[in-house]
Design a protein around this nucleic acid. Sequence first.
DNA 1: CGTTGGCTTGATAATCGTCAATTTTAGTGG
DNA 2: CCACTAAAATTGACGATTATCAAGCCAACG
Lengths: 257, 257
Amino acid sequence: MSSSPPTAKRKLQPGESDGAAEDISGWSGCAACPLRERGFCAVLLQEREGVLDLQRREHMVRARQHLYRAKDKARHIAIIREGIAFRYVVVPDGRRQILSFALPGDFLSTSFLARDTANFSVQALTPVRMCVFDKADLQRFIREEPNAIGAFFEMCVLEKERYEAQIVDLGRRNSDERIARFLIQFATHFGWTGEDGFSFAFPVRQQHMADLLGLTQVHVSRVVSKFRRAGLIELSGGLLQIVDANGLRTAAGVRNN
Amino acid sequence: MSSSPPTAKRKLQPGESDGAAEDISGWSGCAACPLRERGFCAVLLQEREGVLDLQRREHMVRARQHLYRAKDKARHIAIIREGIAFRYVVVPDGRRQILSFALPGDFLSTSFLARDTANFSVQALTPVRMCVFDKADLQRFIREEPNAIGAFFEMCVLEKERYEAQIVDLGRRNSDERIARFLIQFATHFGWTGEDGFSFAFPVRQQHMADLLGLTQVHVSRVVSKFRRAGLIELSGGLLQIVDANGLRTAAGVRNN
DNA sequence: CGTTGGCTTGATAATCGTCAATTTTAGTGG
DNA sequence: CCACTAAAATTGACGATTATCAAGCCAACG
């Protein structure tokens, strides 16, 4: 009856089970924060028209450390200031699925506002600097500032829409399309506006792409190599360059022209 | 460069492009509604401690009719009272992906509270009776009743969690597991508590399962037949019976005992 | 300079899709 | 109630996509 799994089983990588983040440094303030104007922080600042009086701290975690472990009780709510993290779940037999990436300005999930725990874990992909609020504190803030909840609701809906897109990718697009679309999305998030030659830091490993897109690392390697040989992208040394934007869009299944 | 699609292309079925729902009948009230005590309606009733004074109507739509079409401006917000609908997306080359089912008590997406439009369409799978609120009306209600928004936020988070589970299924589970898990979920939603022999109305076609689970109808047929031959389920005449619960759970990749 | 993590590549195989024919089931009108 | 028709499901043969296994390469780094 049971057939073998369709996707790669992953062994735990060394260093992967690092403890939770605990490197707490001082608070450097919002004034210098590049996120001041964006996302949730913008809402906060807007609400109070000036300085925020929420309790907060700044954490710094190394790459591969966990920001949160599935089923743990979350006492804090964090927002990413610098770096990249990812939310993932591991199925019983060891296969890993990445749900989404958390990029600067992203919440470590709006879910924690309504839930004490989550089914996914969160791990730093690069070193991550984050801003941590006490959960009870933030909930009080929300009660006092009726407009804030709207902002959270908005964020929640946005996460949901991202998931919807990902479900369509996983269910109905082949590996070429998934990978090309991921690269495009990622580049777009980092300021790409569609032109040829755009180049940016790309710390994502093939294993991450595989686990996000429901593929194996080996297959991702083949497709990336194919894209490279076809002159669509250049990818080495942690730098990704979009060489042929139209070509990449075509590979992604987007109709150009 | 481009390879052929991984999944079935679907031709539009006859009758599938029916117009939007317009069969408006009178309002039969909340008193007799089986959903009175559950989900959003419970929240509404709790808020006002008695009768709701929101404008509303009752719509009845036939199977295969659309409750909403992607990109349309949504003026209403609906809650399903009876029947089953599904949210889906069609990718440019005709492949369809079902995002989720909407069952009695479910909202026709919390997204519409924050958005005018959605990227998915919603279609009735069976005849659907739904309760329709005017969007502006409901938004006013939310502003006046500060606790209501919390309930919506909660629902939004719940939808998100369902999507997370589905992403894991699509990315990291094989067809047997996906189908078995879907059957289990569905049965559970309709009152199954895990015992052998549970039987219930199952109006879902193989094409729906295929489009939900990222498979083809043909492959779903094979797996369902296999389950049947293995004595796990009985499925015919729109009735599904769970014959061997443990066997089905095993097929789903859940460790028994 | 050996070790480690990440990537590449080849050979082979499993899963799942495609195509097409056929049967079964459900629905409709006489 | 039967005949007819459309929809849905089944089945077989075949093929494509993607996984698995395994070996080797490369660059970073202590």
